[in-house]
Nucleic acid binder design. Structure first.
Length: 774
DNA sequence: CGCCATGAGGTTTTT
DNA sequence: CCTCATGGCG
């Protein structure tokens, strides 16, 4: 097919193409696409906003689009810019385009993550922002460390102003595309006694002397370069004839500015995303980017991918019903023509977290008995601390599980130490690495010696390694420190020498061995030592896949993880965030309680915007499910070692009841009467005139009053409010205070559930334990 | 230099 | 409650 036939094109396709030479507009890769997808592929010219709902074949559409551009020769592979957020996404995209166009995809050197592409551009023009093209990319840890140094140097109280705090301010500014000169003056007051901007400036200067850039810099420096040098910008504008951006709803302002600059000329920019799945606002993502796309790029064509190929109608209805409560959205309606028999979304209330873990585990075992593989099931939680109860239960039940996410390989202490050795070997000027390992293992270089060395180096404008070398020529250093430092520096020279003509894995192993680092862990009593040694071995192996040490190190700084083999036959346990983009036949969504989900902190810090993002997170969770979605909430939960009663999440009330089934605990409550009660409790909802803002325990509440106790409450206790037999300590008429709602007056009391008129928040139903006498 | 006591804080995560 | 970081002391 076409001119770029290759071994990668399946034979069947090549045969087909040979049999009936297809005209370009009826190309075989278009087969099986629906109208919207086809539209998204064919509309190559001008700005395009591809609004792709969950499970609507987004990846297929966008990879086909790129394949189409290449196949029809609208652009050469190197004239296409395609950006993603993660390496994984970039890899998958490349692979899938490869299936369509074969080796041509290898020419797509501008397909990658925002960061890797920005880094590539920055290496070419580094001198404009006072860097050398060999600059190092520092990670979050080093960033914090540097910030700490800057705070210290500024003579600020280090207890009051943490490195972490400064780093997050700087990150935030960089995410918004702000250099020190552009930060609004008012924002300086937020940090370091009004020294915020000064500190930011000092931090940037330190980076320049270190010849380093942090992640935020990669984009920001690009923007600076483009703005200062229209000629350079023009070059890239001409080069990138077609641009494609995946997960556009996750872009921050800096990324937006970068894209806008590049797209200015050809305007052939296609952004793909789903505003309903924007869940990274807290790290700088701007939903506004996708909401305003049509304004930012006049004449943009909006293409909606709404036909869902993943989930059952009930799951789609539940997700759609929930997300409809959000006000700021572009609006989409997912539909499916799958009308086969399917189950409703299952909702279960339980007594406490332990019971929740137990029932989920039971469900999993049931499914397994029915022949379902463990890897077809996933438990998705809001926050990682919720994982523990499931892990414990899985362990006792002997169910294999895999936690997805968690601490990353390249972030672990031993990995970072080892990399510091390798980096320092390649570049002896790398002071951050020097500091990290100069005394690890111990070489007699204590805090005092290092302090002196640092001062010395800075005075002479030398790197630490160089300064150390000079220091050894004097008599100022003696004893253990002298021998330790001498051996260390000798080692560096030797390794640097050897690195030139030795395989990276061999050199890595040699360095770790000769430096005494391996021995450091071997003789460590730490219980983690064996696994750390394992990790070091893994790192050495990973290095072996590269031709040079430098090549490996470049790769490492932009890749957060080495490929972990996802072994089959394990239940997946992860956060909702980590689950974005994945799908499973059976999905469990536990912990749907106020405070937990939506997270109290999101609401506190970001108000309604925070709430909407939480709701999108819930939407992401539900839409991960193909066949079965099981939501649960507990009436009591142990939080920080204290028992707290919990209210069912308001999101539960927002699920359309027609598509939800309340399930009682199998065996315990599984009788017809309670099933009935469950249904009628739903019907009762129509009678209550509770409004949307009532945190949702209506369901439980309405069930409580019935002759037959609600199924999920039966036996152990009433759900939500264990109505203390006596009455509440608050009387009607008394003035009370609530953490979130403020001051108010009790207007009605039933057991420990009260109705209160709050002065600022209006009429609410609350549980007395949330109140204080005012 | 390493170990224990004490205290604070305790979503979500990629590059 | 539990974990991590820091600080003081041996």
């Amino acid at each position: 097919m076409f001119t770029m036939s290759s071994d990668k094109v399946p034979l069947s396709q090549r045969a087909a193409a040979a049999a009936r030479p297809a005209p370009v507009d009826a190309a075989s890769y278009m087969e099986g696409l629906n109208d919207a997808q086809r539209d998204a592929v064919m509309t190559t010219e001008g700005p395009v906003l591809m609004l792709a709902g969950a499970g609507t074949g987004k990846t297929r559409a966008l990879t086909t689009r790129l394949a189409h551009i290449l196949a029809t020769r609208l652009a050469a592979p190197w004239q296409v810019l395609a950006v993603t957020f993660t390496n994984k996404a970039a890899r998958e995209m490349k692979e899938r385009i490869g299936h369509l166009v074969g080796d041509t995809v290898e020419g797509m050197q501008w397909l990658g993550t925002f960061h890797s592409i920005a880094a590539k551009i920055l290496r070419i023009h580094a001198e404009i922002v006072d860097l050398k093209s060999s600059f190092t990319i520092i990670d979050t840890d080093d960033q914090v460390r540097l910030c700490k140094q800057v705070i210290e140097a500024a003579g600020l109280d280090e207890k009051r102003w943490s490195g972490r705090g400064l780093a997050s301010f700087i990150d935030d500014w960089k995410n918004r595309g702000l250099t020190p000169d552009n930060v609004p003056r008012g924002e300086a007051h937020h940090f370091g006694n009004g020294k915020g901007i000064e500190l930011y400036k000092a931090y940037q200067e330190r980076l320049v002397t270190l010849n380093a850039a942090d992640f935020g810099d990669l984009l920001l420096h690009n923007i600076t370069i483009f703005q200062k040098h229209p000629d350079i910008l023009a070059k890239y504008q001409d080069r990138f004839r077609y641009m494609l951006v995946d997960e556009y709803q996750d872009t921050n302002i800096a990324q937006y500015l970068w894209l806008r600059l590049l797209a200015q000329k050809n305007k052939n920019i296609c952004v793909v995303g789903d505003d309903d799945q924007s869940i990274y606002g807290w790290r700088g993502a701007e939903v506004a980017n996708i909401l305003n796309f049509e304004k930012d790029f006049p004449g943009a064509k909006v293409i909606r991918l709404e036909r869902n190929y993943r989930s059952t109608p009930a799951i789609l209805a539940a997700a759609s019903g929930l997300i409809a409560a959000n006000r700021t959205r572009l609006g989409k309606t997912l539909w499916t023509d799958d009308d086969s028999e399917h189950e409703k979304v299952k909702l279960r209330g339980v007594w406490d977290g332990e019971e929740e873990a137990r029932t989920v585990t039971d469900d999993i075992e049931n499914e397994q008995r029915k022949g379902r593989s463990l890897s077809d099931m996933a438990v998705l939680v809001r926050a990682s601390f919720q994982m523990r109860s499931f892990e414990e239960r899985f362990n006792t039940a002997g169910i294999a599980y895999q936690v997805v996410g968690g601490p990353r390989f390249y972030e672990r202490e031993e990995t970072r130490d080892a990399l510091a050795y390798l980096r320092l070997t390649r570049n002896p000027e790398d002071d951050l690495s020097f500091l990290r390992i100069v005394n690890k293992p111990r070489r007699g270089m204590g805090d005092k010696a290092i302090q002196a060395l640092t001062v010395n180096a800075r005075k002479q404008g030398l790197s630490l390694a160089r300064a150390a070398q000079l220091l050894l020529e004097t008599d100022e250093i003696k004893g253990k420190a002298r021998t330790g430092l001498t051996r260390f520096l000798d080692g560096l020279m030797r390794w640097g020498e050897a690195a030139r003509d030795t395989r990276p894995d061999i050199i890595a192993e040699t360095i770790l061995e000769e430096s005494g680092y391996t021995e450091f862990w071997k003789s460590s009593k730490s219980p983690q030592a064996p696994s750390k040694l394992e990790n070091l071995k893994e790192l050495v192996n990973a290095a072996g896949e590269f031709d040079t040490l430098a090549g490996y190190l470049d790769h490492v700084s932009l890749v957060a993880d080495i490929n972990q083999d996802n072994s089959e036959g394990q239940v997946m346990l992860m956060t909702l965030h980590a689950a974005k983009g994945l799908e499973f036949p059976v999905v469990f969504l536990p912990g749907w309680e106020e405070e937990i989900f939506p997270s109290a902190r999101s609401l506190d810090e970001n108000g309604n915007e925070g709430l909407e993002e939480e709701r999108r997170l819930a939407y992401v969770g539900i839409t991960r499910a193909r066949e079965s979605c099981r939501i649960s909430f507990a009436a009591n939960r142990m939080v920080y070692g204290r028992w707290q009663n919990a209210m069912p999440s308001r999101f539960i009330d927002e699920l359309p009841e027609a598509h939800v089934e309340v399930v009682s605990e199998p065996g315990l409550y599984g009788n017809a009467a309670s099933e009935l009660a469950a249904y009628s409790s739903f019907n009762d909802m129509a009678e209550t005139n509770d409004t949307y803002d009532t945190p949702g325990w209506r369901r439980a509440k309405s069930a409580r009053g019935r002759t037959s106790p609600a199924p999920m409450l039966e036996g152990r206790a009433e759900l939500v409010a264990t109505s203390s037999p006596g009455s509440s300590s608050f009387r009607v008429g008394s003035r009370v205070f609530h953490q979130k709602f403020g001051y108010g007056q009790v207007v009605a009391a039933e057991g420990n559930k009260l109705e209160v008129d709050f002065e600022h928040s209006g009429h609410k139903k609350v549980i007395d334990s949330f109140l204080e006498q005012a």
